[in-house]
Design a protein around this nucleic acid. Structure first.
Length: 611
DNA sequence: ATAGGGTTAG
């Protein structure tokens, strides 16, 4: 074989994603005595391995090269980008820069900007932009296009636009990057304008706009745009866009819509896309339909680490800790390596069933067996495990000795265990610390106030109340949304204007009488405002989750599960009430609150009363 | 020979 033929075939391997064939060509080059280190071969081979996902082979070739030119460096940087290791890309570059004093060319600059874009590393990207402007490649359109993408991903679409304007020949790639940036920031009129002005559109562009809307939390806009596409008869040639839409239905907990997207996936024949299936698992879990999540997981032919992690995390969040842990054993037996995300789910599972030893061992295993670096979230999760199981000292030690500064969430989780377990002294110490820190979350303030009230430190209660009052003016009001399949109904806390309010009131009154027979006493310590006892009870009575449950009981088919989505965390009193209601009416109630899921069934909750 | 856009889990 002539070497131009070999080069051609290597390119074919990249295009068709045939690493095995590529490896054969590599072997052929060595066996036939062709000069492996001659012109073109090593860089093309590195590129082939990189693009086919064989990072290790690319790195090995690179390390064995006697001479490296700028193209070799560009190829290996691409390999790290391709393997989704943008941090390595930047790290390797800084090494190359200090060791060899290289000036990056336009190829290398484009790879580096891409790495910054996927990390949303604003500072490094700005530095590269400066370096690019003063370099001799400063008119290169491809680097400019990657800078547009970088600014768009950093949430600065106007900066992206000014770079975009400087591009000499604008193409579908640069247009797509720009429009993604505006979609992500929810700048709808700008998106519409750009869609109109764009001379060239393809599936990439549509996917970019829709995923931009979803990633920026403008899910409804993404659904609307997709409807328009379908109306216009645009063919969905690839499944990419469906994953984004499924993520959108998950984040709004719109189960019916998610199911419709699932049907569309089947109809279009994209069931075999792992990306789509993984998004579906997560969607069903986030919409509280954990059994459909399991079914979807079961139907995947080749599961990857994201599939396993999604179902493990889903099970853990729904209180099925044992199942989550046994899925982990199955996963490792199948030869898959867990990553950071898997371990968050696993430790979370342990903390919900009080498996202290198991959690401790998993944390150790993550470091020693898999060489993973625990993040702040891992430490917080581990501390949570200790404090929930009554090991407050160990929990506090972790927060104090870990290589991160504990944030408000970390202290708040510890504080919540103090109020549950009657550890007053520790609680007061942590509350004082939080007071100095200046809490940002209303839920933290409520915990603090309760601790101070219980310790009779009345001088501190007004301080916390004042903080809370300042927050509540800017925070969203609490609401609960009950999912009745074809329709949803949303209730705000204290709302008394609903057309069915009399029926709802009657039902809640009736339930209240039955609850009191079973020993229920309203826990007013969780209501903070200054008011008389009766007024406090009335306020609790109209908490949005109760109203939503009552409405759900009135409107839904008998025996069905009632699903509630809430924007804040469930309050302690409502939690008690829902446990009672579910057994009084013999119905399952599932509440997705701001942080977790509560499955109320037979008088108990899947969260084990810790949240 | 080497560079730029859209998809999944905490």
């Amino acid at each position: 074989m002539h070497h131009s033929q070999i080069l051609h075939q290597l390119k074919q391997c990249i295009k068709l994603q045939f690493p095995i064939q590529g490896k054969k060509l590599h072997a052929h080059v060595i066996k036939s005595g062709l000069d492996l280190h001659g012109p073109f071969y090593p860089n093309t081979l590195i590129n082939m391995y990189a693009k086919c996902g064989h990072l290790q082979d690319a790195v090995q070739l690179f390390d064995e090269m006697p001479e490296r030119d700028l193209a070799s460096w560009a190829s290996i940087l691409t390999a790290y980008n391709q393997a989704n290791l943008p941090k390595h890309t930047l790290l390797l570059f800084s090494k190359m820069f200090s060791l060899h004093g290289f000036q990056p060319d336009h190829f290398i600059l484009a790879s580096l900007v891409k790495a910054c874009a996927s990390l949303a590393a604003l500072r490094s990207g700005l530095q590269l932009h400066t370096q690019f402007i003063v370099s001799s490649f400063s008119d290169d359109d491809v680097v400019k296009s990657s800078l547009v993408d970088f600014y768009a991903k950093c949430g600065l679409p106007d900066k992206a636009s000014s770079v975009f304007e400087s591009i000499v020949s604008k193409n579908v790639v640069s247009w797509t990057s720009l429009i993604y940036g505006y979609a992500k920031m929810g700048r709808k009129s700008k998106v519409v304008e750009l869609l109109h002005d764009m001379p060239c559109k393809n599936m990439h562009s549509w996917t970019a706009v829709i995923s931009g809307f979803v990633q920026g939390g403008h899910c409804v806009d993404s659904f609307r745009l997709f409807n328009e596409l379908r109306r216009d008869g645009v063919a969905i040639e690839e499944p990419f866009v469906l994953s984004s839409l499924i993520v959108g239905s998950a984040s709004l907990a719109m189960l019916e819509l998610g199911k419709q997207f699932h049907l569309l996936v089947i109809g279009l024949g994209y069931e075999s896309s792992v990306y789509v299936s993984n998004a579906l698992i997560d969607m069903y879990a986030k919409c509280s339909d954990i059994s459909s999540a399991e079914k979807t997981f079961g139907s995947i032919k080749t599961r990857d680490i994201v599939s396993w992690t999604s179902i493990i995390v889903g099970m853990a969040q729904h209180g099925q800790a044992k199942e989550a842990l046994s899925l982990y054993d199955e996963m490792t037996s199948a030869g898959l390596k867990p990553n950071e995300v898997t371990f968050t789910g696993l430790i979370y599972a342990c903390s919900h069933v009080g498996l202290v030893e198991k959690g401790r061992n998993l944390f150790k295993s993550m470091v020693t067996d898999y060489g993973l670096k625990p993040s702040l979230q891992h430490y917080t999760c581990l501390a949570d495990l200790y404090s929930r199981s009554g090991h407050l000292e160990e929990a506090e030690n972790i927060l104090k000795s870990m290589p991160f500064k504990p944030d408000e969430a970390a202290w708040a989780s510890l504080l919540s265990s103090c109020s549950q377990g009657g550890k007053e002294k520790t609680g007061v110490r942590i509350a004082n610390h939080l007071l100095q820190l200046g809490p940002q979350e209303p839920s933290t303030c409520i915990l603090m106030s309760n601790i101070y009230a219980r310790a009779a430190m009345w001088e501190n209660v007004p301080k916390v109340r004042k903080l809370l009052a300042n927050m509540e003016t800017k925070k969203n009001p609490g609401y609960s949304c009950v999912d009745l399949g074809k329709e949803n109904e949303i209730f705000y806390a204290g709302e008394t204007t609903h057309p069915m309010k009399d029926e709802i009131f009657r039902l809640l009154k009736e339930l209240d009488r039955e609850m009191q027979k079973r020993g229920y006493v309203p826990n007013v310590s969780l209501v903070l405002h200054d008011m008389e006892q009766q007024e406090k009870e009335r306020q609790l009575f109209w908490h949005s989750e109760r109203v939503a449950v009552a409405y759900g009981l009135l409107k839904s088919a008998p025996g069905t599960c009632i699903r509630i989505i809430k924007n804040l965390r469930v309050c302690g009193d409502c939690h008690t009430v829902l446990k009672l209601i579910c057994s009084i009416v013999s119905r399952e109630i599932v509440v997705r609150d701001a942080t977790r899921f509560h499955h109320f069934k037979d008088g108990a909750c899947s969260c084990g009363d810790f949240w």
